[in-house]
Design a binder for these strands. Structure first.
Lengths: 210, 210
DNA sequence: GTACAACACACTGTATACAACGCGGGAGTG
DNA sequence: CACTCCCGCGTTGTATACAGTGTGTTGTAC
């Protein structure tokens, strides 16, 4: 793994975990020294983070941790809706939908007997992975992966509302069921409904914390 | 404008215009010397081009002009469908749809009396711009803009099929009409239909030229 | 006291020099 | 004759030194 990759991962983790809050100015020499790399790979890492919309680079001014305003969140969820409803449609059309029957049973099992939050997030990650794999479109997969960073940053705020977690189980199960049934319209609608609820919850958390 | 921006624009133009065909290995020192910049801003430009999927960077091997295989094209058009159908929906829901009434009349005027190809491409560019502006979502806009590079590369092959041009006029007019009417479902369907035709034509051109 | 200008500092953008890795060619051995 | 190992070259990855620009502060003039 290159120095650039290391700097990228470290910075990404710090931004996602709010160790570097939005708006923070990222001084290149200080950061390079703290991360133990030179400025050259650090700048490459910053550019990659800018591509993921985790930092914003202003020419001549430097790099800043990107903001997470309310309108940013709304636009982010619109992007999710565009990509995830279409991905769900592709999955519903796919030949091999076995991964989703497996996920469906796991979600239903969870509804009956919840376990730790981390395991639930792992389950969701498994579903995202299954979607990317089944849709089998590198462009879509990369775009979806790019959104994960921003979403992870939001989740760090939403962690304190575990009540929301229970309701998402049903929504995810509904999505899996529609995909397993091969009903792409219902799958897209289920994704839209899930995202609408998720956005509402996220906005609530944001206005509470501000 | 920085050296990095200059190198990015020059390289992008050369790739789009097939001066650098897919698969070409981009030697850093030669390129830097030819473009009159140093390796540092050149590498930044290459990373930006990799983000636009115009070059593919293999760690330790260097940068190559990205391929345009048949499956790549199909995946690219799927991505277009995901983003453009959703953008069309947003436009159909928007308050100010005046830009599309103007575009609609221009497309209809064109159907009656065609003019030069370049002017038609300018018209399409105006429509893309109107979509981005009306959807008013930076994430969507940036993603759509990212696809333009690849599509421009494809258009350089498709230029030789002017017969296709005439039929796209009706398709674009149908999209504008649906947006003006505020019928988002019809708008999305019109976009899908247009993309399906466009993909079929592009694939034909690709298999003819190979 | 305030406003404008000039200077100094710090930071980003760029160039170049160095190091490490991978690849290819050639020679040697089985 | 073929296969393998090793050496040399070229290329990418990284570090550092330099230049240019923007900003902040301070001093002076009104």
């Amino acid at each position: 793994m290159s120095q650039s990759d290391r700097a990228h991962e470290l910075l990404r983790a710090e931004i996602v975990e709010w160790a570097l809050p939005p708006g923070t100015h990222l001084n290149e020499v200080q950061l390079a020294e703290r991360l133990g790399v030179s400025r050259t790979p650090l700048r490459a890492a910053l550019q990659r983070l800018a591509q993921e919309n985790l930092v914003r680079i202003t020419p001549g001014r430097g790099a800043f941790v990107s903001e997470l305003s309310l309108s940013d969140v709304r636009h982010l969820f619109q992007m999710r809706e565009a990509l995830e409803t279409y991905s769900a449609r592709l999955c519903a059309r796919a030949q091999d939908r076995g991964a989703f029957t497996s996920l469906l049973t796991d979600f239903l099992a969870w509804a009956g007997e919840p376990r730790s939050d981390d395991e639930y997030y792992a389950l969701i990650a498994r579903m995202d992975s299954a979607v990317r794999s089944t849709a089998s479109n590198p462009y879509l997969g990369e775009a979806l992966r790019g959104l994960q960073g921003q979403l992870a940053r939001l989740r760090h705020l939403a962690r304190r509302t575990p009540a929301r977690l229970a309701s998402t189980v049903d929504e995810h199960a509904a999505i899996c069921q529609a995909i397993v049934d091969g009903d792409e319209d219902r799958a897209a609608l289920a994704v839209s409904a899930h995202l609408e609820n998720s956005l509402r919850n996220t906005v609530n958390v944001l206005v509470m914390s501000s």
